[in-house]
């Protein structure tokens, strides 16, 4: 294996790992705020690593620049969208989960 192959494989694996973490957070956490918190951070990192792998495999070219633009856009837009959704949830009266609510989860 060449160093490039190793680097691309490691970056793809890291991206899949963080998308997995985001999916687990989205399924397991108790309310919309914690879910947005987990999914936006893990998903941004996952997209970052995976798109870095894409950039590396395209090499030094205009495609790599296009992928970098895509990466910057995902980095800016994903947390902004999560913030807007959380704020919409707060405005429409979704109560934040607290330790007193017990396991919460499915109903909360």
């Amino acid at each position: 294996m060449t160093p490039l192959e190793v680097a691309v494989s490691v970056l793809v694996a890291a991206g899949v790992f963080f998308v997995f973490v985001g999916a687990v957070g989205l399924i397991r956490l108790p309310d919309v705020y914690t879910r947005a918190h987990a999914s936006s951070k893990a998903d941004t990192l996952g997209a970052g690593f995976a798109l870095a792998a894409v950039m590396l495999s395209f090499g030094f070219s205009s495609q790599a620049v296009k992928t970098a633009v895509l990466l910057i856009f995902v980095y800016v837009s994903s947390p902004t969208a999560a913030h807007a959704i959380s704020r919409a949830a707060y405005r429409s009266g979704v109560e934040p989960w607290t330790a007193g609510d017990g396991d919460g989860g499915e109903e909360g």
């Binding site: 999916a23 989205l26 919309v32 879910r35 947005a36 999560a82 959704i85």
Partner: peptide, 10 residues
């Protein structure tokens, strides 16, 4: 609704 939007966004 917001849970669904977060998931759709992901």
């Amino acid at each position: 609704m917001q849970d669904r939007i977060v998931a759709i966004n992901v």
